[in-house]
């Protein structure tokens, strides 16, 4: 008996293709590095710590599923056959989370409820045209990535899906000098006005785009809970739902970064296009911020522009942190 067969995480390295084995080591190290960056605060710790742990564990914890195939008992994201799925649900420990929360969008809705509870829409209501303009500029990545994606061989549906990543979350760093610009104060919008807006916007948007109705409901119900003063529900959603959802989201993202999945040429293409989309959207957001800055005779902080990129507030958080650092003595 080969002693290495006891330590299958190591013996599988010698059985797999060299590039997969090497990439497994790279991802293990990257996962540990993400945990380090998360604990230092350089990247968002709420996502990076579970993601880093997941990434290093899934790439280290590869075993022989049969005498000739290797895999993990974390998750099988590509499985669609019902019988096989029922079997795997009882074996892979994160499969129930993936199947019943990730792939059907439930985890996104839970996170959106939490975002609604912690979001103050006062700025949007006070400056709706500015907010919409910045949001449109922050979609630049979506517009420009689509033709690039189709040129790289993706069909229209795949290209649209990967381009939309440009409107999603991503940590961005701004030039500190943008933080030094003064901002004008704005008048408070009352909780009653925010609540009425939440009700009207939710109903209207569900009428217009029923395919996204679960997300609209989740976000606006969070806002309604916040602005109604329902503190107990607000605490439940923020501390319970949001942080549970965020934790499992980070963990799932890490566990999905298995070497053999990422080295799939199609997946690699999607990763590169997703990053490109976010990058262009970030640039678009900054451009939008500067356009409003000059249009308002320098009475606007262009740092706000990059916050338009996010559908979850991480870029806004990064922007706020950089502004605080730039303004601190």
């Amino acid at each position: 008996m080969n002693i290495l067969d006891i330590f299958q995480g190591i013996s599988t390295l010698f059985v797999q293709e060299p590039k997969i084995a090497i990439f497994r080591i790279v991802l293990v190290v990257l996962g540990i590095f993400l945990v380090y960056l998360g604990t230092k605060g350089t990247l968002e710790p709420l996502i990076m710590i579970p993601m880093g742990f997941g990434m290093s564990a899934v790439n280290a914890g590869v075993l022989f599923l049969t005498s000739s195939t290797t895999g993990t008992i974390f998750i099988d994201p590509m499985l669609s056959d019902t019988d096989a799925l029922m079997n795997i649900l009882q074996i892979d420990f994160l499969q129930p989370i993936y199947t019943f929360m990730f792939s059907n969008g439930l985890i996104a809705c839970i996170v959106f409820m939490g975002i609604g509870v912690i979001t103050d829409i006062g700025f949007l209501l006070r400056y709706p045209f500015t907010s919409m303009l910045i949001a449109m500029f922050a979609e630049l990545g979506t517009v420009l990535t689509f033709p690039i994606a189709t040129a790289m061989g993706l069909n229209y549906g795949e290209a649209a899906a990967v381009s939309l990543i440009g409107g999603a979350d991503g940590p961005m760093v701004l030039y500190a000098r943008a933080a030094a610009v003064k901002t004008s104060k704005f008048h408070n919008i009352s909780s009653r006005e925010k609540l009425i807006f939440a009700v009207i916007a939710n109903t209207l948007l569900c009428f217009l785009f029923p395919v996204a109705a679960p997300l609209f409901l989740s976000f606006f119900i969070g806002i309604a809970v916040r602005e109604s003063g329902l503190d107990k529900y607000a605490k439940l959603i923020e501390h319970g739902f949001l942080y549970t959802g965020t934790f499992f989201l980070g963990l799932m993202l890490g566990v999905l970064c298995e070497a053999s999945t990422i080295l799939n040429p199609k997946v690699l293409t999607l990763l590169v296009l997703g990053m490109l989309s976010l990058l262009i959207s970030g640039i678009g957001g900054i451009l939008g911020g500067y356009i409003v800055y000059f249009a308002n005779k320098k009475n606007f902080n262009p740092v706000i522009g990059i916050a338009g990129v996010s559908c979850v507030p991480t870029t806004a958080k990064v922007a706020q942190k950089e502004v605080h650092k730039a303004k601190s003595p």
């Binding site: 949007l124 709706p128 045209f129 907010s131 449109m136 517009v143 033709p147 381009s163």
Partner: peptide, 19 residues
């Protein structure tokens, strides 16, 4: 994407006016 962007722009403008 330009058509979708234009539609998004019109809807965003409508939302801003509604607000």
């Amino acid at each position: 994407p330009l058509q979708v962007f234009a539609l998004g722009f019109i809807i965003s403008l409508g939302m801003a006016v509604l607000i």
